[in-house]
Design a binder for these strands. Structure first.
Lengths: 214, 214
DNA sequence: AAAAAACCTGACTAGATGGTCAGGTTTATC
DNA sequence: GATAAACCTGACCATCTAGTCAGGTTTTTT
């Protein structure tokens, strides 16, 4: 029996980094970037503040680390959609993806949506650029659908924010319900909410809800 | 011609108070209570910080003044609804009211909804009490509707948060669209959004949308 | 078991922040 | 035009905050 690390072993660093990220997620979600205190993050992580700053040199870098994690979550089939795809299927799946993120990563979702809704005031240039490009690409696809007659004339930004805002609200809501009553929204509740939302958004665009999302 | 104030005259105090409240609304809405800086509020109001603190002794009292203003906005027909009223009409009208507030008072709406969704961490006991009572009353009415067979078995908190969250999202969204494109959501856009929302929420409760809200 | 790497933290600092205060000016009232 | 009330603000302060640093301990590697 050796004391050396095996591949499957978790280093103290990994463990603490995760503790910190998880604590930071909660604090940033409830107080925003400016309002979050490093000390509070440390307390929630059960570590001294200095230790938090050992792993993440600044409050900003910790925040950006969280945003980077979240960005991966936001990847979806919509990213590769083209004018040849069916907008109803692509959008319905996108809404379902967003709802799943709201369910499984409520705090992350809250932080990222807040950042985007407020015009990304805390994102550095790299992230802003990355997100702008993604945004421009999605808007272009939506515009192409409209030009191709596959989607009614609509504001692409309106549509995207609509999806984010509504699915986001379930993230806020599910957290709150849990605190108030001790019971989370169940899987079935979320499925119903997802169907409702797909119906709302798609019919708002004069699209027919694909049978697999009904 | 006299220099005395007439009833219709506005004192300097009233003017400045309004400037400050309006500036504070913006800052609290975008940074939250903790993240808001008195200096930033002063800058936006075009006044020295000391002057802001002359009118509102503390940051907290300024925040509470805003919440008090908003509370009046939240009054609606739902407050006096009883089991004898038609839930479809009461709820549809309530949603329409909330949407109108999102349209006309986006920032206020954001602050108050945030406060409630986060469990009112910054509200003093008076406000908490006032709101708890309102909440208990509304939940009781919804439960009565359910017992009377006028509304399907549903979680009353879920329903209320659903209405707040979705209508709230239009407040965030409308601000953002304005910044991105220079054009606000028009009256027609908001009417459509309101109808969509009424439909979503009511059908979610197995209620039929009253014709006047269709 | 020695060296290196990773980890930890108490004491500290510079700057920001909410708030005070004392002494001023302007406005309203008689 | 004198008095009172309302308004204004530069200088200041106690406290909080992100971040530094130096000197330590533990873990991993060789």
């Amino acid at each position: 029996m050796t004391k050396s690390r095996h591949d499957k072993d978790v280093t103290i660093g990994e463990l603490n980094r995760n503790k910190i990220l998880s604590a930071a997620e909660q604090v940033f979600a409830s107080h925003g970037y400016k309002g979050a205190r490093v000390q509070e993050i440390a307390d929630r992580a059960g570590l001294p503040k200095t230790n938090v700053l050992y792993y993440f040199k600044t409050k900003e870098s910790l925040y950006l680390a969280i945003l980077e994690n979240i960005m991966h979550l936001w990847n979806s089939g919509f990213d590769e959609a083209t004018v040849d795809d069916d907008p109803a299927i692509v959008l319905a799946q996108y809404i379902a993806d967003k709802m799943e993120i709201s369910r499984s990563h409520a705090n992350s979702s809250k932080i990222f949506a807040l950042e985007i809704i407020n015009g990304a005031p805390n994102l550095n240039d790299f992230f802003k650029d990355q997100h702008s490009k993604w945004m421009a690409g999605r808007v272009a696809v939506i515009d192409d659908w409209i030009k191709a007659g596959k989607l009614k004339e609509t504001n692409p930004y309106y549509l995207l924010y609509n999806i984010w805002g509504t699915s986001q609200h379930y993230a806020d809501f599910s957290t709150q319900i849990k605190e108030l009553q001790g019971t989370s929204m169940g899987q079935q509740d979320f499925e119903n909410a997802t169907k409702n939302l797909i119906h709302l958004i798609l019919t708002g665009c004069d699209l027919t809800v694909p049978s697999e999302f009904r």
